[in-house]
């Protein structure tokens, strides 16, 4: 499994697309300048922009690589030579998943200093009213990473049943948006404003809320940007949710992948 993960990671690192991420890093140079357009919250804006960029890069990479990783192996018939090695399919799948997760982690580790440097510059041009909580910012980026690893697990699950990249890629994008707004919708249907909705609609929405991953739980941007205190309980709960969610998705993916025929 370790060998598969390492080889997968090596594949990403030799991919030209992965290197285009370096170009995005150049965008970070523009963050302090853009942020200085703000009237009252230059540092906060620089944090917002930096976190947005990091999140966007991770979103693109996780959808693209998470959605195509398995598909590419099957499409290019690499699976024939790899699955016929004495490793179980589950290990192959997990290896690919952890390789992808490691790749996202590496990219994040690369982006963190760049993003922090941009914020640091901005905060020195215009010191913020409230000092930047660097630890919170790091935790926020860490949770972003968790969110996208969870998304990769979703994309892998779609890949195990799909014969094209269409379902994994668009399924992942849809899951991302649905999972990002599910909390908002859930809150809405349980508010007074939604009294007019039919019970069936509410039931379906509640069901969907529990089935799809809740990505908004991983969003700590407000805490990082406005130096709001983090709730330890919330952080721990979300981390546990991440572990449970990824395990469940991977178990399901392994189950489906084991039954799949390699023609």
């Amino acid at each position: 499994m370790y060998v598969i993960a390492l080889t997968t990671l090596r594949g990403y690192l030799r991919d030209k697309i992965a290197w285009s991420v370096l170009l995005v890093a150049i965008l970070f140079c523009g963050v302090p300048f853009t942020a200085s357009l703000s009237m009252r919250q230059v540092t906060e804006l620089s944090l917002t922009l930096s976190l947005s960029l990091v999140s966007f890069v991770l979103l693109v990479l996780s959808v693209f690589f998470g959605g195509t990783s398995l598909w590419k192996d099957i499409e290019r018939r690499y699976t024939f030579s790899v699955i016929s090695l004495p490793i179980s399919r589950s290990k192959y799948l997990l290896g690919k998943f952890f390789g992808t997760a490691a790749f996202l982690t590496l990219i994040t580790l690369f982006l963190i200093p760049v993003a922090l440097a941009a914020v640091y510059v901005a905060s020195h041009i215009n010191p913020p009213d409230r000092p930047v909580l660097w630890a919170t910012v790091l935790i926020c980026i860490g949770f972003d990473l968790m969110k996208y690893i969870l998304l990769v697990a979703c994309a892998f699950l779609f890949s195990t049943v799909s014969t094209s990249f269409f379902l994994p890629i668009f399924g992942a994008i849809l899951t991302f948006f649905a999972g990002s707004m599910s909390q908002q919708v859930f809150d809405y249907i349980h508010s007074d404003a939604a009294r007019a909705l039919s019970p069936t609609t509410k039931l379906v929405a509640t069901f969907v809320y529990y089935v799809i991953p809740n990505f908004s739980a991983f969003n700590l941007n407000l805490n990082a940007v406005y130096a709001l205190p983090l709730s330890l309980q919330g952080v721990l709960l979300t981390a546990s949710y991440f572990v449970a969610g990824v395990s469940l998705l991977l178990a399901l993916a392994c189950l489906l992948f084991n039954r799949r025929e390699m023609n």
């Binding site: 080889t7 090596r10 594949g11 018939r77 690499y78 024939f80 030579s81 016929s84």
Partner: peptide, 12 residues
């Protein structure tokens, strides 16, 4: 095992 028309990770 040698597959028919084998194909290996081409980035390696």
């Amino acid at each position: 095992y040698l597959p028919e028309n084998p194909s290996f990770y081409d980035y390696l």
